[in-house]
Simulated scan of single mutants.
Amino acid sequence: MKAADKGMTAAFGVLVNTTGSAITVASAVTPASPKVELHEVADSGGEAKMRPVQGASPSPPAAGWSSSPAATTSC
């Protein structure tokens, strides 16, 4: 978890798909907050910007992704 100066908190983690099938991450929930949003880092004019994930994030079998304050990457 990373608390901002005001108005929001961020959480980062690792998701690993250990199944033999592709999965789709469409949303997240936590008892720590009434609202959860999924964001990604995207290039905007040569500058990295956070933006809400549009739709869902697919994860192929035996793969996953990790998130950090700097980026979201496949693993």
Rank of each mutant, 00 (worst) to 15 (best):
Val25Glu: 01
Ala63Cys: 06
Ser66Ala: 10
Thr73Leu: 11
Thr30Cys: 02
Ser68Glu: 11
Ala32Tyr: 06
Gly64Arg: 03
Gly20Asn: 05
Pro61Met: 02
Ser67Leu: 05
Ala11Phe: 07
Ser44Met: 11
Ser59Phe: 12
Thr24Arg: 04
Gly46Met: 02
His39Glu: 15
Asn17Arg: 01
Gln54Trp: 03
Lys35Ala: 10
Val53Ser: 06
Val16Leu: 09
Ala48His: 04
Leu38Ala: 12
Gly20Ala: 05
Ala62Asp: 13
Leu38Asn: 12
Ser21Tyr: 12
Gly46Asp: 01
Gly20Trp: 01
Val53Asp: 07
His39Arg: 14
Ser33Leu: 10
Ala10Asp: 11
Ser57Arg: 15
Asn17Leu: 01
Thr30Pro: 01
Val25Ala: 02
Phe12Met: 08
Pro69Ile: 08
Glu37Val: 14
Thr18Arg: 07
His39Val: 13
Pro69Leu: 09
Val25Ser: 00
Pro58Gly: 00
Gly45Ser: 07
Ala63Val: 05
Ala26Trp: 01
Gly55Arg: 04
Asn17Lys: 02
Ala62Phe: 13
Thr73Ile: 13
Lys2Cys: 12
Glu37Tyr: 09
Thr9Met: 14
Ser33Ile: 06
Ala48Tyr: 06
Thr72Asp: 04
Lys49Cys: 08
Ala63Ser: 15
Trp65His: 04
Pro34Ser: 10
Val16Ser: 09
Gly64Thr: 04
Ala32His: 04
Thr72Gly: 15
Ala11Tyr: 06
Ala48Pro: 11
Gly55Ala: 08
Pro69Arg: 08
Ser67Gln: 08
Ala22Pro: 00
Met50Glu: 11
Ala48Lys: 08
Gly55Met: 03
Thr24Tyr: 02
Leu38Gln: 11
Leu15Gly: 02
Ala4Cys: 07
Ala28Cys: 06
Val14Tyr: 05
Val25Leu: 09
Met1Tyr: 06
Ser27Val: 01
Pro52Tyr: 12
Thr73Asp: 10
Pro60Glu: 08
Lys2Trp: 13
Gln54Glu: 11
Arg51Val: 15
Val14Gly: 00
Val16Arg: 09
Met1Asn: 06
Ser44Ala: 14
Gln54Pro: 04
His39Met: 15
Ala4Gly: 11
Asn17Cys: 01
Lys6Val: 05
Lys49Val: 13
Thr73Phe: 12
Val25Thr: 02
Val25Phe: 00
Ala32Gln: 07
Ser66Met: 10
Arg51Glu: 14
Lys49Ile: 14
Ser74Gln: 09
Ser74Asp: 11
Gln54Gly: 09
Ser33Phe: 07
Lys2Asn: 15
